[in-house]
Every structure is written in C-alpha cells, then in structure tokens.
Amino acid sequence: MSTVAEAVAARAAASAGPEPLTFAKALTAAMADSLRADDSVVVFGEDIGTLGGVFRITDGLQEEFGEQRVFDTPLAESGIVGMAVGMAMNGLRPVLELQFDAFAYPAFQQILSHVAKMHNRTRGKVRLPMVLRVPYAGGIGGVEHHCDSSEAYYAHTPGLKVCTPATVADAYRMLREAIASDDPVVFLEPKKLYWTKDLVDLEALRAEFDAKPASSEGRAVVARPGTDATLIAYGPTVGTALAAAEAAAAEGRSVEVVDVRSIVPFDDETVTASVRKTGRAVVVAEAAGFASVASEIVARVQERCFHSLAAPVRRVTGFDIPYPPPKLEHWHLPSVDRILDALDDLQWED
C-alpha cells in the first residue's frame, strides 16, 4: 500500500462515515473547501451573495468568506466572464455562476474568443484558471431559456474543458478538480439533480482530493457493469440510462452504463473498452441530436470499435427543436422506453 493511499484510508476511517447529502450541498461544499484551501479563489455572479444564488448553490459562502471573495456583480454576463479573464490573468482563480444555461449567451464573445483562446494565443504564457458554473438542461418544468442543453457549443470550441457530474460525490469531486485546473472549465450542473440526495462520505472525498487533486479529471466511469450492450450517457441522462439498464435486466439483458463525466477531454479508453466488450451501444443525451456531443461520441465509437460492433451505434437524444414549454417537455426528454426501444433495435440474434 502506498503512503498516499494509507493517508486517504486513515482520514476516511476518522470521518463520521457516509451521510445524506444533496447534489446542491456537495457543490457548495466544494466551493467552500476551495475558498478555504486557496486564497486566490474568488466566487461571483448574479444573486450569488446575499441570496446564495437562485438555486442556493453559493448559500452561506459570502457570510463565511466575505464580500471581497464572494460577491454579486452588476447584471451582465459578458462583464462577468470578461472581468474573470482579467482576474485570472492577474493571479486569481475565479469561479463564476452564470444563472441559467441560456443566460450565458451574452458572454459567448468572451468565452469563445478569449477564455478558450488565451492560452493558445500567448503560446502558453497566459493561463486562465477559471470555472464557469452553468445550471444546465431541463426536466424541471422551467419556461423558455431556462432549460437549454448548451454543451455542444462549448465542446465545439477548442480550448475549453467541459464536464458535467451525475452523482452527488462527483458534484463535489469534479467541482474541486475544475477549480484546481489551470485550464478554463465549463462546469455544467444538471438542474434536475440539484435536489437529489445520496449517502456520501465528504471527509473521505476531501482526503481523496488532497492526496491527488486531479485523480478523476477527464475520466469516464462504468456506472453499472453489464455484458450485452453499453449505454453511454452524461449529466442529466445518466440516471435515465441506469433506470433503463435496470428495466432491461428484468427482461434478461445485461446492460452496462458508462457515465462520460468529462466531455472535453473525452475518455476514449473507458468508452471503447466497454463497447468492445459488449459489442452494442446506445448514446443517450438530452440535447438535440443534430451536430451534437452524442454524434461525436457515436463517431468515435464507430471509428474505434467497428470490428467489435454487432449493430450500428444508436442515439437517443432530444428532438431537433427549441426546448419545449413545460407541458410538452416530457415528450422531448429521452425516456426509459425510448432507450429500451433503441436497445431492442441493436440486431439481436435471440
């Protein structure tokens, strides 16, 4: 056993053990711990101070860390991101909240032209260690502009890391890693997961991060093992994929679920290993399917696993439409039934 592993094990043993924690509180804890551990971390955005954010993700941070390090800005997203670029150039590590997915769009000029390119333009002389937290995607009965799946815009822009957690533990782990990263990270937080709860040993997660601050960065994980087919999902659809795998098991099919976690960089190794093993795959994502992250994953799997595939790789995605109003959204979102239909389509011989 290595000394690092021993240290982690020792701290984990000293903790109170797993306790119920919400996804939202895991994110808050990640920011609080980062603010505590590193004086250069600052947190800002709209309504994130006194109010604690419209989703309360920054709840209590201003109280604990003061108005210099946790503060409300004027209402201007391009201002928020552009100012963060300058702050990052001058020694700080800004963590921004953009209030909703579609309200990040006024900042696109800053994100696409500067956040993504600064390191490259300056031949590596300027790093932009910043995190753009974006409450993201739908399934919460929100009205227009509050439910967009915007990951493809970011993923298509070279120079941005893009990730999205699907579990409470990953909410903590991935946000801490994002804040510690020296590259800019677009951190997509599936809104519908904010209020989900899990048993989590926060002290063990802290120990894990302190021992190895980037141990899970850029990695996909097998969320459920299986042998007959692979469902590849990220963020809001991981839970749906797991439910579909459960339903498929009842029908006698062993389905593996891979949680992509990090869209950029993409973990080809884990995904490829799974599909080579099962020989069948369906990619599940909430965003519109056309020119999407799901299409990219299909292409990569097809290129790497062609000889192992028993059927073409399928996609279950949102339709190619603007995000629907609350009363129609259930038709749009990838459902267990649609995933099962897609699985049925994979040219089974039985």
Partner: peptide, 22 residues
C-alpha cells in the same frame, strides 16, 4: 402557464412577445 412560449400574435396589437433574455 407552460403551454407554449407565447400565446398572442405580436402583429395583432403591436406588442412584441414578452421577453426574458434581458
């Protein structure tokens, strides 16, 4: 109410669709 993104014809009364992106 959540049935659609807007319920009236902007041309009828010369009223733009109520706007959320500030």
């Amino acid at each position: 109410r959540g049935d659609w993104h807007g319920g009236y014809d902007p041309h009828e009364h010369h009223v733009g669709i109520q706007c959320t992106p500030l």
